[in-house]
């Protein structure tokens, strides 16, 4: 199918992009890789008046090592992210999860920031940035602001990025020594969306888990942390049985829905099973 008509601008800087968004009014939209946007346009489920193409804004590209954290430009493609040495070394969880996003063609074009700003709870990356307590830099007419991962995701397909704002970059703290990570994704067919995904980062010291961070994909209207499992894991030995037992509360605090892919009960069951698997894998159990 063919999209409805729209205008197109390609600003060279974030400031120009913000101005273009404002000029375009409330039906203007940011596009970078367009891998979420294009299907919506083609099915005419979205009909923006103006597309503001931010894919070529230098400030929104590139990946920087800040010492204790890594900053990723929002217009970096998935491909850039998963092949980046800084990411592979310091934010391996993100590289691993990114490798499961869609398929190679989509990873070549789709962007890290686009996937986050799209706010799809079934996307793989939101759970990762939530688990890793990332910080988001958003630019608008009133300047820049920083938003934490917890506040970034608001509801289905709704984030803290306002209609006249742009996600510029995301900064992810490094985990440091003793941490292991794993992204466990479960889907019905290989190129399908995650029914449930679990992003786990676990710190093991002396055979015991001292800290765990777990983000859940597609378990609520936004990516959520499995907080009660995180608490339950503290101090348990890094063994499959103990991890399995601690993972039984994985569905606490989630708001799983039923859809064609899975009903609530099965989703909650998968949260427990996959959390145990992800944590075991991250902990080397």
């Amino acid at each position: 199918m063919i999209p409805s008509k729209f205008d197109y601008v390609r600003p060279n800087s974030v400031d120009e992009a913000v101005a273009a968004l404002k000029a375009g009014g409330e039906d203007s939209k940011v596009i970078t890789g367009g891998q979420s946007m294009l299907p919506l346009l083609r099915l005419r489920l979205a009909a923006p008046s103006v597309l503001v193409d931010c894919a070529r804004i230098d400030e929104m590209k590139g990946i920087k090592d800040n010492g204790d954290s890594v900053t990723i430009g929002a217009a970096s493609t998935h491909w850039d992210v998963l092949n980046n040495e800084i990411v592979k070394t310091h934010v391996k969880l993100l590289a691993d999860a990114t490798a499961t996003v869609a398929d190679p063609q989509v990873r070549h074009r789709g962007t890290f920031g686009g996937a986050l700003a799209h706010g799809d709870p079934a996307g793989d990356l939101p759970a990762v940035v939530v688990a890793l307590d990332a910080t988001f830099e958003i630019a608008g007419a009133k300047g820049r602001r920083q938003v934490t991962a917890k506040d970034f995701f608001v509801d289905y397909f709704t984030t803290a990025v306002g209609p006249d704002e742009i996600l510029v970059s995301v900064t992810i703290p490094k985990l440091g020594k003793g941490w292991g990570t794993c992204y466990e994704k479960f889907n019905r067919s290989a190129n399908g969306w995650a029914i449930v995904g679990v992003a786990a980062a676990v710190k093991v010291e002396g055979g015991k888990i001292t800290e765990a961070r777990i983000g859940l994909t597609n378990c609520a209207s936004v990516p959520v942390r499995a907080s009660s499992v995180e608490s339950a894991l503290k101090g348990v030995s890094a063994s499959a049985t103990e991890i399995e037992s601690a993972s039984q509360s994985a569905a606490d605090g989630t708001r799983a829905t039923s859809d064609l892919g899975a009903d609530k009960e099965y989703r909650e069951h998968l949260m427990r099973v996959l959390t145990a698997r992800a944590v075991s894998c991250a902990a080397g159990a």
């Binding site: 199918m1 197109y8 367009g34 891998q35 294009l38 299907p39 083609r42 099915l43 597309l51 491909w79 869609a102 398929d103 190679p104 063609q105 989509v106 070549h108 074009r109 190129n191």
Partner: peptide
Amino acid sequence: DTSSCGACTILLDGRSAKSCSVL
């Protein structure tokens, strides 16, 4: 029309892309 089938795949600047999902 959902970027699923890949029949339209081309190389864009040397990397595979679905030409139905690029303007």
